[in-house]
């Protein structure tokens, strides 16, 4: 399973239960559309750190890194490459 699919599955299971994976566009704005709220973002960051074995540092807490499935995938890919 690709990282995009893994991330999408997590987002759907936690924040959009009942949604078919095809219905969630990879560039869908999760933050501005209220899919992920203040509690959800804590859960998302903890999951990203655990699932991809990386630490989300101060500079990485940029909303653009968590705005969409695609953005999270890019962030994870770059963070792993830099590690």
């Amino acid at each position: 399973m690709s990282n995009v699919d893994t991330i999408k599955n997590f987002v759907i299971s936690e924040f959009l239960p009942g949604t078919a994976p095809a219905e969630l566009a990879v560039d869908h704005d999760l933050l501005n559309d209220g899919v992920i709220d203040s509690l959800g973002v804590l859960k998302l960051i903890a999951w990203v750190e655990d699932r991809f074995e990386l630490a989300v540092g101060d500079a990485d807490l940029d909303p653009e890194n968590f705005r969409s499935v695609e953005a999270i995938d890019h962030f994870v890919t770059h963070a792993r490459a830099a590690a």
């Binding site: 999760l30 933050l31 203040s38």
Partner: peptide, 8 residues
């Protein structure tokens, strides 16, 4: 961040 949602 005006469009940062919960990270703003």
């Amino acid at each position: 961040h005006p469009r940062g949602g919960p990270l703003g």
